[in-house]
Computed example of a mutant assay.
Amino acid sequence: MRLGVTAARPRGDQRDDGDRRAARGLDAWLRLLTLHDQHDLADAEPDTMRFRLYHLPARLARHARRRFLRIERTGPWADAFTTSWRRLTDLPAVT
C-alpha cells in the first residue's frame, strides 16, 4: 500500500467539482449581499434558491439594442428577485 498517492480522476469530474464549488460560492455571496433580510431565503439551501429565484417565470425581450427581463409581478418570489437585483446593481464596481 502506497501512502500519499491518489487515483487520477477523469477530467470531466474535476470540472464538475469546480462548477459545483463556484455555484455554491455564488449562492453564498448572493445570500450574504442581497438576501440578508429575506427570512425565507437568507439561510436557504441551494435547491431552494434554484427553485425560488433562478426558475422564476420571466421573458427576455429585446428592443432598440437593449434587453429587458420582464418578470411577472404576481410571481411568488418576484419581490425577492427584484430586491436582490437592485442591491447587486447598486454595489460599487471593483477597481
Rank of each mutant, 00 (worst) to 15 (best):
D47P: 02
G25M: 06
Q38H: 14
H39Y: 15
D47F: 08
D16W: 09
L30S: 05
A28Q: 02
D17R: 14
T48K: 07
L33R: 14
R21L: 07
L32Q: 10
D17Q: 13
H55L: 10
L26N: 06
Q38I: 14
L35S: 06
R15S: 13
E45T: 12
D13F: 11
D37L: 14
A42L: 12
D27S: 03
A22N: 02
R52V: 00
L32F: 08
D47R: 11
D27F: 04
R20Q: 06
H39K: 15
D27H: 07
A28K: 05
L32M: 12
D19V: 08
R20Y: 02
R50Q: 11
H55K: 09
F51M: 13
D40V: 08
G25P: 00
Q14Y: 12
Q38W: 10
D47S: 12
D47Q: 10
T48R: 10
D13K: 14
L32S: 10
T48F: 05
D43T: 12
A22W: 02
Q14T: 13
F51W: 13
D40C: 07
A44H: 04
R15Q: 14
M49F: 05
D17L: 13
L32P: 02
D47M: 07
R31Q: 13
A44Y: 03
H55C: 08
T48A: 12
R59D: 08
A58E: 04
M49D: 01
A61R: 15
L60F: 04
A44T: 05
D27R: 03
D19N: 11
A61C: 11
L33V: 12
R52A: 03
L60C: 12
